[in-house]
Amino acid sequence: MGGKPQTANIDNRLRHPLSANAELIAQLPVDMVIDNYFYEHARNLYGDVPAESVMFAAKGETATWADYTEPTRELGVLIDNPKMAEDYIVQSQKDIQLASQQFKERYPKAKKFAVVQFADANNMRMYVANSLFQPALEQMDRELVVLGKGNNWGFVPIRMGDLAQLDDETCLLIIDPLSPITRAEIDDSLIWQRLGYGNTRCVGELPPVWIYGGMSSLVSLANNLSDVSLKGGEVL
């Protein structure tokens, strides 16, 4: 969401506080820094610039649409433009609904999804109910299927064999990046071959999404899903 010209977040180059350049921060034309609690320990780098924390994350065991709209409204108050925040929420919901419609036209049978990201060929993160995938899929009238309760970051570690617990109607979404080496090892895995993803079971790949990007991440995820290429199972 945009804001006043003088108001800005720390830019992408400064997201890792250990590598932050204090001189560069001092030169940025800002009158406020909006961070989250992960970066509060780096506030001494901001000098006299005031800082506020806004966090986009689940407040309970299941992430809700309100967990993303309420912090957006907080941002609107902080930049003295509540209407901009409300307009952004309305437009974001419209964008997600449009993406949902486009997806349903392409894959009307695909209604249940499990979302994973591979660490290596046998270990992965499964994103669960307290991640942004829950409200995004819910807004798209689709179901997130999970295997367990998530940690504070919205995922549960699983192994490839655990995917056998998913039913045949659940489509597996793999979040990139996936290195060529890991991809080759997955393809060569006997477990993967027996699971049948890409043949008897549905699978697709999605571009990376910033887990803590707020409403913009929900919209990006919905748009990515509207463009995804699914294969296998009975989705076609």
Rank of each mutant, 00 (worst) to 15 (best):
22 A>E: 13
144 L>P: 05
137 L>W: 07
185 E>P: 00
235 V>F: 00
54 V>E: 07
141 D>Y: 03
164 A>I: 06
95 D>Q: 15
226 S>I: 06
185 E>Y: 06
49 V>C: 11
197 Y>S: 10
229 S>Y: 01
157 P>H: 05
57 A>F: 08
65 W>E: 14
203 V>K: 12
213 G>P: 08
204 G>E: 00
171 C>M: 02
109 K>R: 15
131 S>E: 11
218 L>P: 02
222 A>M: 07
196 G>D: 07
214 G>A: 07
222 A>H: 03
106 R>M: 02
211 I>T: 14
206 L>H: 00
152 N>F: 04
148 G>W: 03
31 D>A: 05
109 K>Y: 05
85 A>Q: 07
105 E>I: 03
4 K>P: 04
84 M>I: 04
70 E>M: 06
34 I>W: 10
85 A>M: 02
199 N>K: 15
114 A>G: 15
64 T>M: 08
166 L>I: 09
139 Q>G: 15
113 F>N: 02
43 R>S: 14
215 M>Y: 03
167 D>I: 01
126 M>T: 00
22 A>P: 04
11 D>T: 09
17 P>G: 09
141 D>K: 13
141 D>M: 06
205 E>V: 08
43 R>Y: 03
20 A>H: 07
218 L>I: 14
140 M>L: 04
218 L>N: 04
94 K>H: 10
230 L>Y: 01
33 V>L: 10
13 R>V: 11
181 I>A: 14
144 L>N: 08
147 L>F: 02
68 Y>L: 08
203 V>Q: 11
136 A>L: 13
216 S>G: 09
133 F>Y: 15
231 K>T: 12
15 R>V: 12
231 K>Y: 05
202 C>T: 00
110 A>P: 03
174 I>G: 01
75 L>A: 04
194 R>C: 00
224 N>F: 14
167 D>F: 00
48 D>G: 09
55 M>N: 11
212 Y>P: 01
14 L>K: 00
163 L>W: 01
155 F>V: 07
223 N>D: 13
207 P>Q: 05
10 I>R: 13
128 V>D: 07
155 F>R: 01
110 A>E: 03
29 P>V: 01
198 G>H: 05
235 V>A: 09
176 D>S: 13
162 D>A: 14
57 A>Q: 15
126 M>G: 05
189 S>W: 06
89 I>Q: 04
193 Q>S: 14
119 A>G: 13
81 N>P: 10
210 W>D: 11
28 L>R: 10
133 F>L: 11
127 Y>G: 07
88 Y>D: 12
11 D>P: 15
49 V>T: 15
61 E>D: 15
226 S>R: 01
85 A>D: 00
81 N>L: 02
157 P>N: 12
204 G>I: 01
30 V>A: 15
190 L>A: 15
51 A>E: 07
75 L>M: 14
158 I>N: 03
217 S>G: 06
72 T>Q: 11
113 F>Y: 15
